[in-house]
Protein backbone atom coordinates (compact mmCIF):
# COMPACT_ATOMS: atom_id res chain seq x y z
CA UNK A 1 0.00 0.00 0.00
CA UNK A 2 2.79 2.39 0.85
CA UNK A 3 4.52 1.73 -2.48
CA UNK A 4 1.30 2.45 -4.27
CA UNK A 5 0.83 5.67 -2.34
CA UNK A 6 4.35 6.80 -3.17
CA UNK A 7 4.00 5.92 -6.86
CA UNK A 8 0.65 7.65 -7.14
CA UNK A 9 2.22 10.52 -5.23
CA UNK A 10 4.93 10.82 -7.85
CA UNK A 11 2.35 10.97 -10.62
CA UNK A 12 0.38 13.57 -8.73
CA UNK A 13 3.64 15.34 -7.94
CA UNK A 14 4.19 15.87 -11.66
CA UNK A 15 0.70 17.27 -11.94
CA UNK A 16 1.04 19.56 -8.92
CA UNK A 17 4.32 20.84 -10.32
CA UNK A 18 2.37 21.91 -13.37
CA UNK A 19 -0.26 23.51 -11.12
CA UNK A 20 2.36 25.54 -9.28
CA UNK A 21 4.90 26.38 -11.94
CA UNK A 22 2.96 29.15 -13.66
CA UNK A 23 2.33 30.88 -10.38
CA UNK A 24 5.98 30.64 -9.54
CA UNK A 25 7.17 31.89 -12.90
CA UNK A 26 5.05 35.01 -12.58
CA UNK A 27 6.22 35.63 -9.03
CA UNK A 28 9.84 35.00 -9.97
CA UNK A 29 9.87 37.43 -12.85
CA UNK A 30 7.52 40.14 -11.62
CA UNK A 31 7.39 39.75 -7.83
CA UNK A 32 3.65 39.68 -8.30
CA UNK A 33 1.38 37.21 -6.57
CA UNK A 34 -1.26 35.99 -8.96
CA UNK A 35 -3.91 35.13 -6.44
CA UNK A 36 -6.27 34.36 -9.30
CA UNK A 37 -4.05 31.48 -10.45
CA UNK A 38 -6.47 28.82 -9.22
CA UNK A 39 -9.32 30.57 -10.98
CA UNK A 40 -7.52 30.61 -14.30
CA UNK A 41 -7.02 26.90 -13.74
CA UNK A 42 -10.76 26.58 -13.15
CA UNK A 43 -11.44 28.45 -16.38
CA UNK A 44 -9.12 26.06 -18.19
CA UNK A 45 -11.04 23.12 -16.75
CA UNK A 46 -14.36 24.56 -17.91
CA UNK A 47 -12.97 25.35 -21.33
CA UNK A 48 -11.82 21.73 -21.71
CA UNK A 49 -15.17 20.52 -20.42
CA UNK A 50 -17.17 22.53 -22.94
CA UNK A 51 -14.82 21.84 -25.81
CA UNK A 52 -15.28 18.13 -25.13
CA UNK A 53 -19.02 18.26 -24.46
CA UNK A 54 -19.95 20.49 -27.39
CA UNK A 55 -17.27 19.83 -29.99
CA UNK A 56 -15.93 16.45 -28.82
CA UNK A 57 -12.41 17.80 -28.75
CA UNK A 58 -9.88 15.46 -27.20
CA UNK A 59 -8.38 17.09 -24.08
CA UNK A 60 -4.96 17.03 -25.69
CA UNK A 61 -6.28 19.06 -28.57
CA UNK A 62 -8.12 21.51 -26.33
CA UNK A 63 -4.99 21.74 -24.17
CA UNK A 64 -3.11 23.18 -27.09
CA UNK A 65 -5.86 25.66 -27.87
CA UNK A 66 -6.16 26.62 -24.22
CA UNK A 67 -2.44 27.23 -23.77
CA UNK A 68 -2.46 29.56 -26.75
CA UNK A 69 -5.70 31.28 -25.79
CA UNK A 70 -4.71 31.76 -22.17
CA UNK A 71 -1.28 32.92 -23.25
CA UNK A 72 -2.77 35.78 -25.19
CA UNK A 73 -5.18 36.52 -22.36
CA UNK A 74 -2.12 36.75 -20.11
CA UNK A 75 -0.42 39.21 -22.44
CA UNK A 76 -3.52 41.40 -22.42
CA UNK A 77 -3.88 41.23 -18.64
CA UNK A 78 -0.20 42.01 -18.21
CA UNK A 79 -0.40 45.26 -20.10
CA UNK A 80 -3.70 46.09 -18.42
CA UNK A 81 -2.47 45.69 -14.84
CA UNK A 82 1.14 44.96 -14.21
CA UNK A 83 3.12 48.03 -15.34
CA UNK A 84 0.74 50.26 -13.39
CA UNK A 85 0.98 47.98 -10.39
CA UNK A 86 4.76 47.91 -10.44
CA UNK A 87 4.90 51.68 -10.29
CA UNK A 88 3.29 51.53 -6.83
CA UNK A 89 5.26 51.66 -3.62
CA UNK A 90 4.42 48.18 -2.37
CA UNK A 91 3.69 46.28 -5.55
CA UNK A 92 3.93 42.79 -4.08
CA UNK A 93 1.30 43.48 -1.43
CA UNK A 94 -0.99 45.40 -3.77
CA UNK A 95 -0.73 42.60 -6.32
CA UNK A 96 -2.26 40.19 -3.82
CA UNK A 97 -5.22 42.48 -3.36
CA UNK A 98 -5.57 43.31 -7.04
CA UNK A 99 -5.53 39.70 -8.15
CA UNK A 100 -7.91 38.86 -5.37
CA UNK A 101 -10.27 41.26 -7.12
CA UNK A 102 -9.59 39.49 -10.41
CA UNK A 103 -10.32 36.20 -8.66
CA UNK A 104 -13.68 37.45 -7.40
CA UNK A 105 -14.49 38.74 -10.86
CA UNK A 106 -13.68 35.43 -12.56
CA UNK A 107 -15.47 33.36 -9.97
CA UNK A 108 -18.58 35.49 -10.23
CA UNK A 109 -18.53 35.47 -13.99
CA UNK A 110 -18.05 31.70 -14.06
CA UNK A 111 -20.87 31.04 -11.65
CA UNK A 112 -23.19 33.30 -13.62
CA UNK A 113 -22.22 31.56 -16.85
CA UNK A 114 -21.91 27.94 -15.72
CA UNK A 115 -24.02 27.73 -12.56
CA UNK A 116 -22.69 26.09 -9.44
CA UNK A 117 -23.18 22.45 -10.40
CA UNK A 118 -20.23 20.09 -10.55
CA UNK A 119 -18.78 19.17 -13.94
CA UNK A 120 -16.53 16.27 -14.68
CA UNK A 121 -15.13 14.38 -17.63
CA UNK A 122 -14.91 10.58 -17.76
CA UNK A 123 -11.35 9.38 -17.30
CA UNK A 124 -11.85 6.93 -20.15
CA UNK A 125 -11.30 9.78 -22.63
CA UNK A 126 -7.62 9.64 -21.86
CA UNK A 127 -7.30 5.88 -22.02
CA UNK A 128 -9.12 2.78 -20.83
CA UNK A 129 -8.41 0.52 -17.95
CA UNK A 130 -5.72 0.69 -15.31
CA UNK A 131 -2.13 1.05 -16.39
CA UNK A 132 0.65 -0.71 -14.52
CA UNK A 133 3.59 1.47 -13.64
CA UNK A 134 6.44 -0.33 -11.82
CA UNK A 135 3.96 -2.97 -10.74
CA UNK A 136 1.40 -0.50 -9.43
CA UNK A 137 -1.99 -0.27 -11.11
CA UNK A 138 -3.23 3.25 -11.69
CA UNK A 139 -6.00 4.82 -13.77
CA UNK A 140 -4.80 5.54 -17.29
CA UNK A 141 -6.03 9.13 -16.96
CA UNK A 142 -3.59 9.75 -14.09
CA UNK A 143 -0.66 8.42 -16.03
CA UNK A 144 -1.66 10.42 -19.07
CA UNK A 145 -2.05 13.66 -17.12
CA UNK A 146 1.16 13.04 -15.20
CA UNK A 147 3.07 12.43 -18.42
CA UNK A 148 1.77 15.60 -20.05
CA UNK A 149 2.68 17.52 -16.91
CA UNK A 150 6.19 16.11 -16.94
CA UNK A 151 6.59 16.98 -20.60
CA UNK A 152 5.39 20.53 -20.00
CA UNK A 153 7.74 21.05 -17.07
CA UNK A 154 10.57 19.81 -19.27
CA UNK A 155 9.57 22.36 -21.90
CA UNK A 156 9.62 25.11 -19.29
CA UNK A 157 13.13 23.98 -18.40
CA UNK A 158 14.22 24.16 -22.01
CA UNK A 159 12.72 27.61 -22.30
CA UNK A 160 14.46 28.93 -19.20
CA UNK A 161 17.85 27.28 -19.60
CA UNK A 162 18.37 26.61 -23.27
CA UNK A 163 16.72 29.49 -25.10
CA UNK A 164 18.07 33.01 -25.33
CA UNK A 165 14.78 34.56 -24.22
CA UNK A 166 14.68 32.19 -21.26
CA UNK A 167 18.13 33.26 -20.14
CA UNK A 168 16.99 36.88 -20.34
CA UNK A 169 13.96 35.85 -18.29
CA UNK A 170 16.18 34.35 -15.62
CA UNK A 171 18.28 37.49 -15.61
CA UNK A 172 15.16 39.48 -14.78
CA UNK A 173 14.42 37.01 -11.97
CA UNK A 174 17.91 37.40 -10.55
CA UNK A 175 17.92 41.19 -10.58
CA UNK A 176 15.35 43.32 -12.30
CA UNK A 177 17.26 46.59 -12.05
CA UNK A 178 20.46 45.03 -13.35
CA UNK A 179 18.46 43.48 -16.18
CA UNK A 180 17.15 46.89 -17.18
CA UNK A 181 20.67 48.27 -17.07
CA UNK A 182 21.90 45.44 -19.27
CA UNK A 183 19.44 46.53 -21.93
CA UNK A 184 16.93 43.75 -21.45
CA UNK A 185 13.44 44.73 -22.47
CA UNK A 186 12.06 43.79 -19.08
CA UNK A 187 8.52 44.76 -19.99
CA UNK A 188 8.44 42.40 -22.95
CA UNK A 189 10.07 39.55 -21.03
CA UNK A 190 7.61 40.01 -18.18
CA UNK A 191 4.62 40.12 -20.51
CA UNK A 192 5.68 36.86 -22.13
CA UNK A 193 6.29 35.26 -18.74
CA UNK A 194 2.85 36.36 -17.64
CA UNK A 195 1.36 34.85 -20.76
CA UNK A 196 3.20 31.59 -20.19
CA UNK A 197 2.11 31.61 -16.55
CA UNK A 198 -1.54 31.88 -17.49
CA UNK A 199 -1.11 29.36 -20.29
CA UNK A 200 0.28 26.90 -17.76
CA UNK A 201 -2.59 27.61 -15.38
CA UNK A 202 -5.07 26.91 -18.18
CA UNK A 203 -3.23 23.77 -19.19
CA UNK A 204 -3.27 22.38 -15.67
CA UNK A 205 -6.98 23.11 -15.65
CA UNK A 206 -7.52 20.81 -18.63
CA UNK A 207 -6.39 17.86 -16.52
CA UNK A 208 -8.08 18.99 -13.30
CA UNK A 209 -11.25 16.94 -13.96
CA UNK A 210 -9.09 13.79 -14.13
CA UNK A 211 -6.77 14.55 -11.23
CA UNK A 212 -8.80 16.63 -8.79
CA UNK A 213 -12.31 15.35 -9.48
CA UNK A 214 -15.25 17.41 -10.59
CA UNK A 215 -14.90 21.16 -10.96
CA UNK A 216 -17.13 24.05 -9.93
CA UNK A 217 -16.56 27.80 -10.31
CA UNK A 218 -15.57 27.91 -6.63
CA UNK A 219 -12.57 25.58 -6.68
CA UNK A 220 -10.06 28.37 -7.36
CA UNK A 221 -9.40 29.26 -3.73
CA UNK A 222 -8.54 25.73 -2.63
CA UNK A 223 -6.32 25.14 -5.63
CA UNK A 224 -4.53 28.37 -4.87
CA UNK A 225 -3.56 27.04 -1.47
CA UNK A 226 -2.19 23.84 -2.99
CA UNK A 227 -0.35 25.81 -5.65
CA UNK A 228 1.14 28.06 -3.01
CA UNK A 229 2.14 25.10 -0.87
CA UNK A 230 3.92 23.55 -3.85
CA UNK A 231 5.71 26.73 -4.86
CA UNK A 232 6.70 27.73 -1.36
CA UNK A 233 8.00 24.21 -0.70
CA UNK A 234 10.14 24.53 -3.78
CA UNK A 235 11.09 28.18 -3.16
CA UNK A 236 8.95 31.03 -4.38
CA UNK A 237 10.59 32.54 -7.44
CA UNK A 238 12.49 29.41 -8.48
CA UNK A 239 10.40 27.66 -11.13
CA UNK A 240 12.34 24.43 -11.16
CA UNK A 241 12.34 24.12 -7.40
CA UNK A 242 8.62 23.80 -7.97
CA UNK A 243 9.20 20.28 -9.27
CA UNK A 244 10.64 19.23 -5.92
CA UNK A 245 7.81 21.00 -4.14
CA UNK A 246 5.29 19.26 -6.39
CA UNK A 247 6.68 15.81 -5.73
CA UNK A 248 6.89 16.33 -1.96
CA UNK A 249 3.36 17.64 -2.01
CA UNK A 250 2.02 14.84 -4.19
CA UNK A 251 3.57 12.06 -2.13
CA UNK A 252 2.55 13.51 1.23
CA UNK A 253 -0.97 14.04 -0.08
CA UNK A 254 -1.24 10.42 -1.17
CA UNK A 255 0.19 9.18 2.11
CA UNK A 256 -2.26 11.33 4.05
CA UNK A 257 -5.17 10.07 1.98
CA UNK A 258 -4.09 6.49 2.53
CA UNK A 259 -3.44 6.60 6.25
CA UNK A 260 -5.14 9.71 7.66
CA UNK A 261 -7.79 10.52 5.15
CA UNK A 262 -10.01 12.66 7.39
CA UNK A 263 -7.09 15.03 7.98
CA UNK A 264 -5.88 15.10 4.38
CA UNK A 265 -7.31 18.54 3.62
CA UNK A 266 -5.17 20.02 6.38
CA UNK A 267 -2.04 19.07 4.50
CA UNK A 268 -1.49 21.99 2.12
CA UNK A 269 -2.01 24.44 4.96
CA UNK A 270 0.32 22.74 7.38
CA UNK A 271 3.01 22.18 4.76
CA UNK A 272 2.83 25.83 3.80
CA UNK A 273 3.04 27.17 7.32
CA UNK A 274 5.66 24.64 8.33
CA UNK A 275 7.99 25.37 5.46
CA UNK A 276 7.54 29.10 5.78
CA UNK A 277 8.38 29.01 9.46
CA UNK A 278 11.33 26.67 9.17
CA UNK A 279 12.75 28.15 5.98
CA UNK A 280 10.90 31.32 5.05
CA UNK A 281 12.56 31.45 1.65
CA UNK A 282 11.61 27.91 0.72
CA UNK A 283 13.71 24.80 0.68
CA UNK A 284 16.14 26.13 -1.91
CA UNK A 285 15.92 29.84 -1.24
CA UNK A 286 18.70 32.18 -0.45
CA UNK A 287 18.45 34.18 2.72
CA UNK A 288 17.10 37.46 1.49
CA UNK A 289 14.58 38.37 4.14
CA UNK A 290 14.65 41.85 5.52
CA UNK A 291 14.33 42.58 9.24
Amino acid sequence: MIVHAVMAGLVFGCYFTLVGIGLNLIFGVMRIVNLAHGDFLMLGAFAAFWLYTLLHWHPLFSALAIVIGFGFLGLALYYLFVPRLQAARDAEMLSIILFFGVQQFIEALASIAFGSSERSLPGAILGRGPVRLFGQAMPAAWIFSGAISLLTVALVYVYLYRMRIGILTRAVMVNREEALAAGINVDRISAIAFGIGLGLAGLSGVFAPFMLGSVTPAIGGDINLSAFAVTVLGTLGNPLGTAVGGVIFGISMMLMQTYLSSWANLLPNLLLIGVLLIRPTGLFGRETRRA
Binding site: F27, V33, D90, E92, M93, S95, I96, F228, V232, L236, L272, I273, L276, L277, P280, R289, R290
Partner: peptide, 8 residues
Protein backbone atom coordinates in the same frame (compact mmCIF):
# COMPACT_ATOMS: atom_id res chain seq x y z
CA UNK B 1 7.35 39.60 5.04
CA UNK B 2 5.02 40.66 2.26
CA UNK B 3 3.28 37.94 0.34
CA UNK B 4 4.70 35.20 2.53
CA UNK B 5 2.93 36.51 5.59
CA UNK B 6 -0.38 36.99 3.79
CA UNK B 7 -0.33 33.47 2.36
CA UNK B 8 0.82 31.81 5.57
Amino acid sequence: SGAYFAIA
